[in-house]
Design a protein around this nucleic acid. Sequence first.
DNA 1: GAGCTTGCTGCAAGAGGTTGCATTAGCATC
DNA 2: GATGCTAATGCAACCTCTTGCAGCAAGCTC
Lengths: 156, 156
Amino acid sequence: MTVQRVSRSSRSTAFKEVRSRLRSRGLRWTPQRRALIDVLSATDGHVTGAELVELCRDRDPETTPSTVYRTLEVLEEIGLVKHSHGRDGRQEFHIAPASEHGHAICENCGEVRELSEGDVAGLVGSLGKRGFAVDLSHLTVGGLCPRCGNSGVPLA
Amino acid sequence: MTVQRVSRSSRSTAFKEVRSRLRSRGLRWTPQRRALIDVLSATDGHVTGAELVELCRDRDPETTPSTVYRTLEVLEEIGLVKHSHGRDGRQEFHIAPASEHGHAICENCGEVRELSEGDVAGLVGSLGKRGFAVDLSHLTVGGLCPRCGNSGVPLA
DNA sequence: GAGCTTGCTGCAAGAGGTTGCATTAGCATC
DNA sequence: GATGCTAATGCAACCTCTTGCAGCAAGCTC
Ligand SMILES: [Mn+2]
Ligand SMILES: [Mn+2]
Ligand SMILES: [Zn+2]
Ligand SMILES: [Zn+2]
């Protein structure tokens, strides 16, 4: 009971924040956007665009993909989500993480691990010296994880 | 004249090499594969899958996308090409490079630069210590190049 | 609450790529 | 040169997005 009350109130707080961030840019608060934000707030980790479309359809079967994808763009502009690209290049979304980070993806089993600052410091510094400003959420590296390294036949 | 004769002969040598590499695996030498290899041998740098389909269609308007993409997979298995993923995650192909390498892509202007061993040494080492074997051709990092860093509005 | 502006939605079409399946055609053998 | 095994092709359908456009509706104003 108490738990539920807390989670409900924290969610509606999150809604108000997003709503005002949209409104301050002249953007609108619509049922479709509310539904997507609701879905996003209930997910952990990485979700693909197609998965988000499905999750929205669970609430409202009328959901249109183009609206979802366009809303995701808007939410990324206001900093609520970040996307990266999984193997095959599919989009994956995070609820805006405390810190941006890159990803390492196993090409055999699909396991995703987040990269630490230390992991990427060399690359960021090296490119930085040449004037290239790295966008951490678009730093993706494929390879084979420890479990797949000896046995697996690489896929992607 | 001399130049042309040399380039023709070096190309047909390349054909024979690929042909025998295919045959030794029980794979076949078809007109469609020959056309694609011909197209690939005439390209420099990075080409997208869709571009290759178009280039093949220039030679043979009957060209089917699925055949091209499947042939690219085969050519990658025998080591003739390597693919990586550009911004938006689209596939890009290289004629098998002397050394594998990662890519940095400007999210504003699309410029691609190849990463040196030094650029990625830290990341490869750091992941390596945790048992993750990096596939260099699937190392892509987005960001803003020197020209776009101050002015441009990021796209992808 | 009615009107108005303009952002948003839904639809249809299209781009890039993948997959299952029936048919075709390499190529090894005779 | 004909036969047969099986790999490769072409087709249709599908997946993940993306884009243009006409109509709809959020939300400001009076
Ligand atoms: Mn790939
Ligand atoms: Mn992207
Ligand atoms: Zn793995
Ligand atoms: Zn640039």
